[in-house]
């Protein structure tokens, strides 16, 4: 699994989802939205990696991270430009509903890893895994993009970089941690799983919270809304005098 020189190859899971990806990318609007989103994740990823370059004390890693970050920034631009081009051609402004983000996620992101204060080993292990995951998905995206050669070419180009990212992070991990690099990878893998679970759990909780609040909104709020509207009618626009005592105590929160 962690051969010294892996090449871009979609994972079985990603391959299984090919029909879904094909469907997601078939619609121009959806494609535009996804490309824009990818543009953001690539740029954000670039920022994280740039930060890694700034905080590492290993000169070789600093140079590699910097090149890596520059690649990610370029990917962001490529995605954004392609999205803008598609927008111009299709003349669509619409914000479409379903984008399948969790089904067809974008590039990088370090899973909320705090770059400051992380060891080089942890950084490299995380980077390797997320680059590998990105390479796997971008491979599929490229393959389902036959109907859109320019976008396909972009994925092709980016894929080439991702392969480099995936490989150098692994070789560098082996360099800085010759003995235990496998263990670091496993730890990063588990941590990614745990974070994925946390993300899922918090988004479920958020959905539940929204449902509860929405129910409260329609059940509890109407009488108060009625009163608030009446009060608003009585309120006159313009200046409101500030009474000198209204703000004299700094202990108050209201």
């Amino acid at each position: 699994m962690d051969s010294p020189r892996p090449h871009e190859r979609p994972t079985a899971f990603d391959r299984m989802l090919t029909p879904v990806h094909r469907w997601i990318w078939s619609d121009t609007n959806r494609r535009v939205q996804k490309l824009l989103r990818f543009g953001e994740t690539e740029t954000d990823g670039g920022r994280d990696i740039l930060r890694a370059a700034e905080v590492t004390s290993d000169p070789l890693l600093r140079r590699l991270y910097l090149e890596h970050a520059i690649d990610e920034f370029r990917h962001g631009i490529l995605f954004r430009h392609r999205a803008a081009e598609l927008l111009r051609v299709s003349r669509s402004h619409s914000n479409i509903g379903f984008q399948g983000d969790w089904l067809a996620p974008g590039g990088h992101g370090l899973d909320d890893l705090q770059v400051d204060g992380e060891s080089d080993q942890t950084m490299l292990a995380f980077l390797h895994l997320s680059e590998k995951a990105a390479a796997s998905r971008f491979c599929i995206y490229r393959d389902v993009m036959q109907h859109d050669p320019p976008t396909r070419a972009i994925f092709e180009e980016i894929l080439h970089d991702e392969t480099f990212h995936m490989n150098y992070t692994l070789t560098q991990l082996a360099r800085v941690e010759p003995q235990q690099h496998k263990r670091h990878l496993w730890r990063a893998r588990l941590s990614r799983l745990w974070k994925a679970y946390l993300r899922l759990a918090t988004s479920l909780a958020a959905i539940l919270g929204s449902i509860l609040l929405t129910i409260q909104y329609f059940v509890l709020l109407p009488p108060f809304a009625w009163m608030a509207k009446r009060a608003a009618h009585r309120e006159s626009a313009g200046w409101t005098a500030v009474s000198p005592t209204s703000s004299d105590s700094l202990n108050r929160q209201y």
Binding site: E67, H160, F164, N167, Y168, T171
Partner: peptide
């Protein structure tokens, strides 16, 4: 630099 060399080698 070494970084560029690695890049050429790996990519």
């Amino acid at each position: 630099t070494e970084a560029e060399r690695i890049r050429e080698e790996v990519a």
